[in-house]
């Protein structure tokens, strides 16, 4: 097989795929759009149920009212403040969780001697819900960002750690033997063997961890903060502004959806290895 042949072949294939992509794109988008029909139907049915008097509009404000509430909050500027406060907390907590989860996951995954002692400890702490940590977090850190950082880190740590640990543990023995055979220094082993081999596991753990972190920030803000989306819906409850509560919930759901989609995108970009021709 010559270089030219191989190059030519893959080039032909790529351009062929591009052409197919262009002609099919409209049909492709339509075929994907049908998966969102139930999502679109929900607000329509809801709106209809309220307007026809089947459902109490005070307890279930219709989507049109919720949308108006979101617009109001956006125009007043408080929505951006709350959204950015919540996201910023997740960024901090999630970063700490990623560093700790990946670090400990790789370490314990490769050191069974150590993990035998540490894993039982982790498995006992893991089932304690983040909600159960809120009181102690307030006692330790007071109110504001710090308890939220703590709770998010804690919540996001476990999925990241567990996934990384499993990935590091399942590293094929033959790769370890190759590294030993060639006398690879530890840093090279980590950079070129352990990390790339574990990366798909790490990314999956991070995606799940980010989702957990996002639920944690709201929980933390309900109780221990004076800003953020969680605080906002809690405050709206006390003033019985049901449409604001639901507006906040909608925004929480949307942001979570976007975060997950972004992580899936990153996962797909980084995990895909060149397939065989």
């Amino acid at each position: 097989m010559s270089v030219l042949q191989v190059g030519g072949y893959s080039q032909d294939r790529e351009s062929a795929e591009r052409n197919v992509g262009r002609t099919r794109s409209a049909a492709f988008v339509l075929s994907k759009a049908r998966y969102y029909v139930p999502l679109m139907m929900l607000p329509i049915l809801w709106e209809f149920a309220v307007r026809s008097g089947l459902v109490n509009g005070n307890l279930f404000p219709p989507p049109s009212t919720i949308a108006a509430a979101i617009m109001d909050l956006a125009r007043a500027g408080t929505l951006w403040r709350d959204v950015s406060a919540s996201i910023l907390r997740v960024v901090v907590g999630f970063s700490v969780a990623t560093i700790a989860g990946v670090g400990f996951g790789l370490l314990l995954g490769r050191l069974p001697v150590l993990s035998r002692y540490v894993i039982p400890l982790i498995e006992v702490v893991r089932p304690i819900s983040v909600i159960a940590w809120i009181p102690i977090a307030i006692l330790w850190f007071g109110l504001g960002d710090r308890p939220a950082w703590f709770l998010i880190s804690l919540g996001a740590f476990f999925p990241i750690f567990t996934s990384t640990y499993d990935g590091a543990r399942s590293l094929a023995d033959v790769y370890v033997r190759v590294a030993r055979c060639f006398g690879a220094p530890r840093s090279l082993f980590i950079r070129q063997v352990l990390l790339p081999a574990t990366l798909p596991h790490i990314l999956t753990g991070m995606r799940i961890g980010l989702g957990t972190g996002w639920t944690c920030v709201i929980a933390a803000e309900l109780v221990s903060a004076t800003s953020g989306l969680g605080y906002m819906i809690q405050l709206a409850r006390t003033t019985i502004e049901t449409e604001k509560v639901l507006a906040g919930m909608m925004v929480i759901g949307l942001i979570g959806f976007v975060m997950n989609s972004l992580m899936l995108l990153v996962e797909r970009k980084l995990s895909v290895r060149p397939a065989a021709d």
Partner: peptide, 29 residues
């Protein structure tokens, strides 16, 4: 083990995430 005695492994045992050049360079690590 040591790089004075290198091994060609059964089923090659190349690193699928490294290019040909990086796989070869790994032995020089």
């Amino acid at each position: 083990p040591g790089p004075d005695r290198t091994m060609m492994f059964q089923d090659y045992a190349l690193f699928p995430w490294l290019t040909v050049a990086d796989n070869i360079a790994f032995g020089l690590g």
